[in-house]
């Protein structure tokens, strides 16, 4: 364990954090809606120095055989070496796959997208929704930045017009059929303490991590725990706080 990790752990015992935040404080969160004109919907989220851009693109494809009446959602995250000296080139690794799947589950399980409205011809043609997550600068808590950006990008997305087999991207009018805005909130367990929105330094010193995605009515729609064992008390705290923090973040969308 390096000196900084030890320092963070020592601080946390006195309920202090390395950047002076309270245990339940997010860093400054900003959201820019639709910065990318070519995307159907997009958002740029900054949490402290963490920067993530998410773009939504739509296309037409064949439905899965077991869901012939439903549109398709595909979430993909690309941890480009542009965003951090620790990211490497090559096929998606564990970390980017986990990130994409956490965001995917939040959207899917909350039934955020009304997939039945994305059916064009049953069993033959449906809309495909691509959510592409691109971190630009990684300074911790990519999950929350990505989740918030994805929610905003979907909420502000306009579908291209479909004429026969052709997609007309110049005429985007109809909003995406959206029913929910799932928002993930991530906590780090450092020693036995729980902090919200871990920075990169805290992620290095943490021994566990938990992400809880919640819906507008306060229901939980996805959980992902990582790392070491966690006490029930901390899990309960994370569940309670995620609803409150989720509500605040949802206002930005």
């Amino acid at each position: 364990m390096n000196v900084q990790d030890q320092y963070i752990i020592n601080l946390i015992q006195k309920a202090h954090r390395i950047d002076g935040r309270g245990l339940e404080d997010f860093r400054k969160v900003t959201l820019e809606k639709n910065p990318i004109g070519q995307a159907e919907g997009s958002a740029l989220v900054q949490i402290g120095n963490t920067k993530v851009v998410v773009g939504v693109k739509m296309g037409v494809g064949t439905p899965f055989p077991d869901t012939p009446k439903e549109g398709i959602l595909i979430c993909n995250a690309e941890l480009s070496p542009l965003a951090s000296p620790n990211f490497e080139l090559g096929p998606p690794g564990e970390e980017s796959i986990e990130l994409a799947r956490i965001i995917d589950r939040g959207i899917r399980e909350s039934k955020a997208i009304d997939v039945e409205k994305l059916c064009i011809t049953e069993g033959e043609k449906v809309w495909m929704v691509f959510v592409d997550i691109y971190p630009i600068n990684h300074q911790g808590n990519l999950i929350d930045a990505s989740g918030l950006a994805a929610a905003s990008a979907l909420a502000n997305a306009k579908m291209p017009k479909l004429e026969g087999d052709k997609l007309i991207y110049d005429e985007k009018k109809t909003p995406l059929p959206l029913k929910e805005l799932p928002i993930p909130v991530t906590f780090a367990q450092i020693k036995d303490h729980l902090v919200v929105d871990p920075s990169l330094e805290e992620e290095r010193a943490m021994n566990g991590r938990i992400t809880v995605s919640t819906k507008e009515n306060g229901n939980v729609c996805a959980i992902q725990k990582g790392g070491d064992a966690m006490t029930m008390a901390n899990i309960e705290k994370a569940l309670d706080m995620s609803v409150k923090k989720g509500k605040d973040l949802r206002k930005l969308v």
Binding site: I36, Q38, A39, E40, S42, V53, G55, V56, K57, G59, N76, E78, S80, P81, L89, P91, F130, D132, Y134, L167, Y169
Partner: peptide, 17 residues
């Protein structure tokens, strides 16, 4: 040098990679 396009950068989505 690595040049890449974000999938959402164009009218039709670009496959990542």
């Amino acid at each position: 040098c690595i040049y890449s396009m974000a999938p959402f950068s164009t009218t039709e989505r670009v496959r990542p990679g």
